[in-house]
Simulated assay, not measured.
Amino acid sequence: MDGSATPNSDFPVMHSRGVMVPRDPAVMTPKLRRALRLNGYEAKEVNAALKCVADGDTVLELGGGIGFVSTFLAKKRAVQAIHTYEANPHLIAFQHQMHALNEVTTVTTHNALLAPRKGKPQSFYVRENFLASSLSPEVSNMPVKSVEEVEVLGLNTVFRDVKPDVFICDIEGAEAELLPHLKYDGLRAAIIELHPQWIGAEGVRAVFDAMHAAGLSYFPRWSDQKVVCFRKEWPLK
């Protein structure tokens, strides 16, 4: 459902699964608006997160996108904190607006990339379809709109600082290269969106091996196609 602007938004507002979303034309493509209107945007990820995240949890999210998942979780669960990392600098202001519009105060947004270790800023390729923006300069039929230099932080340093209970990851194929470097055993659950069209069978195996090394087991009942869940054995807290 679309509506008029609110005091917290310069744009008309639409509603999806209880979340208010500003219809900023710079971000909200017709395809995205339709997915939100039909409650289908990131539905598999959101459904898995509802099963994995409990009140009092700290959540670390890689690939925050428009801020829908973090906003939804902060409204549905009394989380301690959500730290969301998004490489696309054009989406940071939109995330802030989403959180303010929904009166969410437990989410901290970081414009940064995570890598095996802290390094020099890295080129991030922004495309007209922001969902296809990535570290790769070549994605077929999707020309680059701009190239941004983004801060690079160390994966394990961030995990040690944040100390997450639940990890959510949707980073457009970079999961296969990044996650094998994870050395953190404090997770209770993880939700990973795989991109087998880019990482292939070897990359999928690398993600599974990384999660198993972190003490988590694949849990098919909470998984849905490319969105896969891992968790520690019961009892959970």
Rank of each mutant, 00 (worst) to 15 (best):
M20F: 14
D24E: 13
K31E: 14
V139G: 02
K226P: 00
P25E: 12
D170V: 01
M98N: 08
A26Q: 12
N102Y: 11
V162M: 07
V104G: 05
Q95T: 09
E42H: 11
H83N: 07
G67I: 14
S146A: 15
H181R: 09
F219R: 11
M28A: 06
I92H: 05
L114F: 06
Q225W: 14
N129P: 01
H83T: 14
F68S: 02
E177T: 08
R231I: 08
L32G: 09
Y184M: 06
E45W: 00
P7S: 06
Y85W: 11
S133W: 10
V126L: 02
F94A: 03
A74M: 10
V144I: 15
N141D: 15
F167S: 03
L38Q: 14
A49C: 15
Q225I: 13
G56N: 07
V107P: 06
G154Y: 03
L38C: 06
A176E: 02
N141G: 02
M14H: 00
L236V: 10
A189N: 05
V150E: 08
C52T: 13
R34Y: 12
D209N: 12
M20W: 12
V126H: 00
Y184V: 03
A201K: 13
A214E: 09
E172R: 12
S70Q: 04
A189T: 06
M211L: 15
M20H: 15
F159I: 04
H90M: 04
V204S: 04
W222Y: 00
T109F: 04
I199F: 03
A189S: 14
W234T: 09
K145S: 12
G64L: 10
Y218G: 05
D170E: 05
V59P: 01
M20G: 09
F130T: 11
R17A: 13
Q97M: 15
D10R: 14
A87K: 02
